[in-house]
Design a protein around this nucleic acid. Structure first.
Length: 777
DNA sequence: TGAACAGGCGTTTTT
DNA sequence: CGCCTGTTCA
């Protein structure tokens, strides 16, 4: 068994104990993925049919990669027939084939968060409830929490405690809203994310024969990232595994970071109680990171009260200390990171793809995008607004959704008057109110428009427009019976007027919208091809739509193999690894988030998040924080994150140690770099006049702490050798930017002097002298 | 009917 | 700041 070679003792055990319940506690970087893949390969090699294996992963991408690796051991065709994917996608698939039992159409729509919120807003409006008191987002998260704990509407209404709790929270109509919301989804033939799990539970509980079928099918079950499963997922796994009990869960309680969406850390903490015979294997040797990184991460996580005791260690090199950079502002922070990446790229021949920039919130992205762009460093942002959430893409998708499921009122209301065809809000409302009063769906009314028209109270012009619109939709539906999804989608884009409407807008944004629609069509083409190659593939439109609703940004990377720096939130970085990690924005109220600093539990989760972030790093880690940050249109002062002080200082190295002394303004005068800016530094102002000047006016306090400019500085190259004096006004040459003039120098610590240089072609750049390798001409 | 604009508001993480 | 809502005007 070649694939068993090179496993350590614990790994070997985890791979080869194939019968009975098994819990693998896998510390960060301990070869968890390897164990999972090899375990599955081992199952198949030992005669278990891939047909009987169910593997639940955290992302679809993880599943795809794992399949690939398994394929290399046992052959591609076996690997492909394993059921592997996220909870949501696997059970969406099962629900499609069993939906009729629950009263849903098999091509039910999957609502994403935005769809759910829209439905909820309508419900709240319909019930005449004050939307200010019942913020849709807040209501949604409560409903979600109920669903994830299998508290159905009925269960809720039978539970005085819950109702009282909501009443105390000024939400006494929550039950009503919840009820209406569920009804609405049902009528629309739609399930939200939580429904995919909740309805699966319903299916398995209400229909024992269905449960038996899948129990028999999934004789070997593996669950990755078990620490991040919620109660609903836990029950599904438990039900399916109860016959054979060949269940293997893999996880690390120290990396549980999804409690906000219902993840229940007790699922893993109590595994032994559920399966008293369970064997526990601990993987504690970290193969990923240097000792310094592992030790620093351990130091922080040890501050958590609630955890399994573990001894994660590394036998790799000690490695460099973690470098800490204290930035003056978010822009400065981003500038440092970009300069640092550029420098390491040059001096250590690191590929750009070796680097990750990890942050707590998506809104931090922008500054880094700016700084990387300025240096022409290629990058890719993960997460944020995904491709499929763009308006123009959602619009086309809404048409397609409607074709597949006429009852999807969300989709209908999105497209009925888009592009504008004269069916305004008033007319739409009449239609909806009438449909509701007759207790039929809007599509039924449109199906029999002639019959209902006298009662609708709409004028003939509108009625004609409605009829035309519906005839168009019907024509698409007919077409769908004979043509493939791509052809139909193409036709929809054209005939609905969507493309034309978008093409009329010749602004850059407008052009990119057309491209996005084109891209959607392409991805559809790709999906169909892919599905046709797989044995039990389904190239149908509804499968495509379902896969989109459940796809994450990570899944869509297409593993674009180009050499790029990765930017993402820490949450998205789970499971990944990078040679060099920049963990940025280490400030109180940002990380830990001000939303999660009130209770110990919340704080511990933030700490686990920190742990996850740091343990992504293989060779080098950088921490940065800014003492002031541009936020919500204002400058906010910031304090360093408490997590920084939780890392023993022996693991840290402060890049700008001289900084502290400079905070004291010895002259007693209020000074800032702008006052003393050389008169000829006009391009400095040009760079970003609004922002800089605003800051200057608004926060004299912050600015007064700023660096004092220096008149001359010594160029020190990274190796610390040969040097050269340089001063404002000098002509210099830069490897990439060419020739330019130094307009400004900044800083007294020779390791950290910054220069502003106006280049002939590239414009102004902020350079760190140490890194920039300027040559005086 | 719909585009254009002003004002208010909330700001975490995601399947 | 940027998103969303509501209002105004053509």
């Amino acid at each position: 068994m070649k694939y068993l070679q090179g496993l350590n003792e614990a790994q070997y055990q985890a791979v080869t104990m194939i019968e009975g319940p098994l819990m693998v506690l896998a510390g960060a970087g301990s070869g968890k993925t390897r164990v999972l893949t090899m375990r599955i390969a081992h199952l198949i090699t030992n005669g278990v049919s891939p047909f009987h294996i169910l593997a639940l992963t955290f992302t679809n991408k993880a599943a795809r990669e794992m399949k690939e690796r398994i394929g290399k051991v046992v052959g591609e065709s076996d690997a492909k027939s394993i059921w592997m994917g996220t909870f949501h996608s696997v059970f969406a698939r099962i629900l499609r084939s069993e939906a009729h039992l629950l009263g849903f159409p098999s091509n039910f729509t999957i609502y994403d968060t935005q769809d759910s919120l829209n439905v909820l807003k309508k419900v709240i409006k319909e019930l005449n409830i004050d939307a200010d008191l019942y913020k849709p987002k807040k209501v949604m998260s409560r409903i979600s929490a109920y669903k994830n704990n299998l508290i159905t509407v009925r269960a809720y209404l039978n539970n005085p405690e819950l109702m009282e709790a909501d009443e105390r929270a000024n939400m006494k109509y929550l039950g009503q809203i919840y009820g209406k919301y569920v009804e609405s989804c049902f009528r629309n033939g739609a399930m939200d994310f939580d429904d995919l799990l909740l309805r699966t539970n319903e299916l398995l509980t209400r229909f024992p024969e269905v449960l038996a079928k899948y129990q028999d099918r999934f004789r070997y079950i593996l669950v990755d990232e078990y620490q991040d499963t919620n109660h609903s997922q836990y029950l599904i796994v438990k039900a399916l595994a109860s016959k054979f009990e060949n269940i293997c869960v893999v996880g690390d309680d120290a990396q549980s970071i999804y409690s906000f969406r219902g993840a229940n850390i007790y699922n893993i903490l109590n595994f032994k109680k559920d399966y008293p015979d369970a064997v526990t294997v601990s993987l504690e040797q970290n193969y990923r990171s240097t000792q310094n990184i592992v030790d620093a991460a351990n130091a922080v996580i040890s501050k958590n009260v609630q955890q399994f005791k573990k001894n994660v260690f590394s036998e790799n090199e000690t490695g460099e200390k973690i470098k800490v950079y204290r930035a003056l502002s978010d822009a400065d922070e981003a500038g440092f990171v970009a300069a640092n990446i550029w420098e390491l790229h040059n001096s250590q021949q690191r590929k750009f793809s070796d680097f990750a920039i990890l942050y707590r919130t998506n809104s931090q992205t922008r500054a880094f995008e700016d700084s990387l762009r300025k240096k022409n460093i290629p990058y890719r942002v993960y997460g944020g607004l995904s491709f499929y959430q763009r308006k123009e893409v959602k619009d086309l998708l809404a048409y397609l959704r409607l074709l597949v499921n006429e009852n999807d009122n969300e989709a209908l209301s999105r497209v009925i008057n888009y592009p504008a065809r004269g069916i305004g809000e008033t007319s739409q409302n009449k239609l909806i109110v009438f449909a509701d009063s007759q207790n039929i769906s809007v599509s039924k009314v449109l199906d029999n428009l002639g019959f209902y028209s006298p009662q609708l109270g709409l004028n003939n012009g509108i009625l004609t427009k409605l009829a035309d619109f519906w005839a168009m939709i019907k024509a698409f539906e007919v077409m769908l019976k004979t043509e493939d999804a791509y052809t139909v989608a193409m036709e929809v884009a054209k005939r609905s007027g969507l493309i034309k409407f978008l093409k009329d807008d010749q602004t850059p944004e407008g052009i990119s919208r057309v491209e996005n629609v084109q891209e959607l069509l392409n991805s559809m083409r790709g999906f169909i091809d892919e599905q046709q190659q797989v044995e039990d593939g389904d190239p149908g439109l509804s499968n495509f739509l379902g896969s989109i609703a459940l796809s994450t940004d990570q899944d869509n990377t297409k593993d674009d193999d180009r050499d790029k720096v990765s930017l993402m939130t820490i949450h998205l970085s789970k499971g990944l690894e990078f040679p060099v990690v920049h963990l940025v924005g280490l400030e109180e109220n940002l990380f830990p988030s001000f939303m999660s600093s009130s209770t110990r539990e919340e704080l511990e989760e933030e700490r686990r998040l920190f742990y996850v972030a740091l343990t992504r790093a293989e060779k080098q880690a950088f921490f940065t924080y800014a003492i002031s940050r541009f936020q919500w249109g204002k400058i906010t002062d910031a304090e360093p994150s408490r997590f920084l002080s939780e890392v023993n200082s022996e693991f840290l190295e402060f890049i700008n140690p001289a900084m502290e002394s400079r905070f004291v303004n010895h002259s007693g005068l209020k000074s800032n770099i702008f006052d003393e800016m050389p008169a000829d530094a006009r391009s400095f102002k040009k760079l970003d006049p609004k922002k800089k000047i605003e800051r200057n006016e608004e926060t004299p306090k912050t600015m007064s702490r700023n660096l004092k400019p220096v008149a001359t500085a010594r160029i020190i190259n990274p190796s610390g050798q040969s040097s050269q004096d340089i001063e404002v006004g000098d002509q210099v040459r830069h490897d990439r930017f060419g020739i330019g003039e130094v307009t400004f120098l900044d800083g007294t610590d020779p390791q950290n002097i910054k220069a502003k240089v106006v280049f002939q072609h590239e414009g102004e750049k902020n350079l760190i002298l140490k890194f920039a390798k300027l040559t005086k001409i």
